[in-house]
């Protein structure tokens, strides 16, 4: 008879960086970018965060795409107000780097972790609604995309600039709205049944820090110091 060996393994404790440290890094980087007028420094900061994105195997093209719209808006605003010169280029670079840096730092923590950090600032009711809406966003997007796909498979052209196309789009959204509304009513009934009070999803925030946090703090301090030394002309 073969012996069955059961191994009980405990997960290795990882030295996770606290979300507060990530927030500190985000604030430091954004402050540095906002006050900087030195193009080389801005490009350096942007390059650093693009490298971080590459190392974390995140989609670089997606990150760059996210930076394009703010950059174009800033460039337009800059060109309209300042005419030529390097000013509009600096404005556009600043907007792009801020977007890239914000995405990189925000993606270091999960949506839940950021929400938990926000709980001290926003009403408990809003925090609960944000938690409940996460599933709704996922379901709603899937439902909407599947409705659009079903129409396309039937050879229906959904052109939002034609009367029929816009009507179809409105009907698709109406279907999604009704399904989401029914889900919300069901969730509301369940919450009422269980004796809901605002702040249901609130959790105490962990204020313990580890050695990895020190690295992030040093990085934040480095960005601030670098911004002061190299940020200005």
């Amino acid at each position: 008879m073969a012996h069955v060996r059961i191994e009980v393994t405990t997960p290795k404790r990882q030295a996770a960086v606290a979300v507060q440290s990530k927030l500190l890094l985000l604030l430091a980087v954004l402050s540095t970018v906002i006050v900087s007028t030195n193009l080389a420094w801005l490009l350096g900061v942007g390059g650093f965060f693009l490298l971080l994105t590459l190392l974390r195997r995140q989609p670089v093209v997606h990150v760059v795409t996210l930076a394009v719209l703010p950059a174009v808006t800033a460039l337009w605003l800059g060109l309209a107000g300042m005419g030529g010169g390097t000013g509009p280029i600096v404005l556009a670079t600043r907007a792009a780097v801020a977007a890239i840096a914000a995405y990189s730092v925000i993606s270091l923590a999960s949506f839940i972790e950021w929400l938990l950090l926000l709980q001290t600032l926003i009403p408990g009711l809003l925090l609960d609604a944000l938690y409940l809406s996460m599933k709704g966003v996922e379901r709603g997007t899937q439902r909407f995309q599947s409705k659009l796909s079903a129409l396309r498979l039937r050879g229906v052209d959904i052109n939002p600039f034609s009367k029929d196309g816009l009507g179809l789009l409105a009907n698709c959204l109406g279907g999604v709205l009704l399904e989401a509304w029914d889900d919300a009513e069901e969730a509301g009934n369940m919450l009422a049944l269980r004796g809901y009070r605002p702040g249901l999803f609130s959790e105490p925030v962990n204020w313990r820090f580890c050695a990895s946090d020190l690295v992030v703090w040093l990085l934040a301090a480095g960005f601030l110091t670098g911004g002061i030394i190299y940020g200005a002309h």
């Binding site: 009711l125 809003l126 409940l132 809406s133 709704g136 966003v137 709603g140 009513e185 509301g188």
Partner: peptide, 15 residues
Amino acid sequence: KAVARLAFAIAFMVV
């Protein structure tokens, strides 16, 4: 029910 409806409104706006 207000919380659930608020969650619905948030989700719909994002979708």
